[in-house]
């Protein structure tokens, strides 16, 4: 068996610096909360559990099933992880999966990993868990149905977020990327939903205690339902809107300066690659270039000092 790259993993080079930095900030904040919550609420047993569950998600992504035309359906796993592990643990497990995919298999870039974590590891969990949490006390049939819908929507949410990031980065046109991404993932999402439901049905049959009242999946509060519902609603409303009236959305973004902000690199705030007080000379260009390098340096020095503190 070989490792097959899955869609949605954005490689390096496709997002603008500003967009990818914003994604990192959001991802890091959410992960920081997830880490503090898992430390607080879960026992030491949770460490091997999350680790092996991350490996499970990774292996489960390899379980494909043939669909017509030589393609095959398979799993992203965010919703399934959220339902069986609870949302915070699932976020950490999914993050580990995406990190290994990027680092070891170059499936998804390193600098854009924040965006990939956000798209595939965080928003999928919020949508998948939030919707499922709302149905947790219902009948088996309702739970499974809701889980299936949640799994499908989680993939759609990830795909929509990915397209928006590509658009904001100036890498793709909104009117093409949104329908294309959502169209493909509407199909991929069906596979996701079927496998998620199949897996949950199996677990409910053999070990219902793992999904019961006292399980990890029932621990978190109803705020999740709200968050899941809001994002799902946004996906449901925004997707057709973006597909039908891309020009409108583009104009809104342009009028409010989002596009410009997203597509310029942070250092380009220095206008036109020149440093104002040096005037438009080649020296000025060099200095402006050096500012870019300083960002690289700052990052390395930051890493360096943390090394020194360690040793």
């Amino acid at each position: 068996m070989h490792y097959l790259p899955a869609p949605l993993h954005i490689p390096d080079g496709f997002l603008s610096l500003t967009v990818l930095l914003i994604c990192w900030v959001i991802a890091i904040v959410m992960l920081a909360v997830a880490i503090s919550r898992t430390n607080k609420s879960l026992g030491e047993k949770q460490v091997p559990l999350m680790g092996i569950m991350a490996a499970f998600i990774f292996a489960a992504q390899m379980l494909n099933f043939p669909v017509a035309g030589g393609t095959s359906g398979h799993l992203l796993g965010g919703a399934l992880a959220a339902i069986v592990l609870g949302p915070w643990a699932a976020m950490l497990a999914m993050t580990a999966v995406i990190a290994v995919q990027g680092l070891l298999f170059q499936d998804g870039g390193l600098l854009v990993m924040g965006a990939n974590i956000l798209n595939m590891g965080l928003i999928t969990v919020v949508v998948g868990y939030g919707l499922y949490r709302g149905a947790i006390n219902r009948s088996r049939k309702t739970r499974l149905t809701v889980a299936g819908v949640a799994a499908w929507l989680s993939v759609m949410a990830g795909a929509l977020l990915t397209s928006l990031q590509l658009w904001l980065s100036g890498t793709a046109r909104l009117q093409v990327v949104v329908p294309a991404m959502l169209g493909v993932h509407a199909l991929i999402g069906i596979g996701e939903a079927l496998i998620t439901v199949g897996a949950l049905a199996f677990i409910l049959q053999t070990r219902p205690d793992l999904l019961g009242e006292n399980s990890a999946s029932a621990q978190s509060g109803r705020g999740w339902v709200f968050a899941g519902a809001i994002i799902s609603l946004a996906v449901v409303l925004l997707s057709p809107l973006a597909s039908a009236f891309p020009d409108g959305l583009e104009r809104v973004a342009e009028n409010h300066g989002f596009l410009q902000l997203a597509q310029t690199s942070p250092y380009e705030i220095i206008p036109g690659y020149t440093v104002p007080f040096l005037g438009d000379t080649s020296l000025s260009t060099v200095v402006a270039g050096l500012v870019g390098v300083l960002i690289v340096l700052a990052l390395s020095i930051l890493a360096g000092t943390s090394l020194q503190k360690k040793s």
Partner: peptide
């Protein structure tokens, strides 16, 4: 797809 789902469920329990 259901067969694949059952396999995923089985894999989950083993894990």
């Amino acid at each position: 797809a259901r067969v694949a789902g059952n396999m995923a469920g089985q894999l989950f329990l083993r894990s």
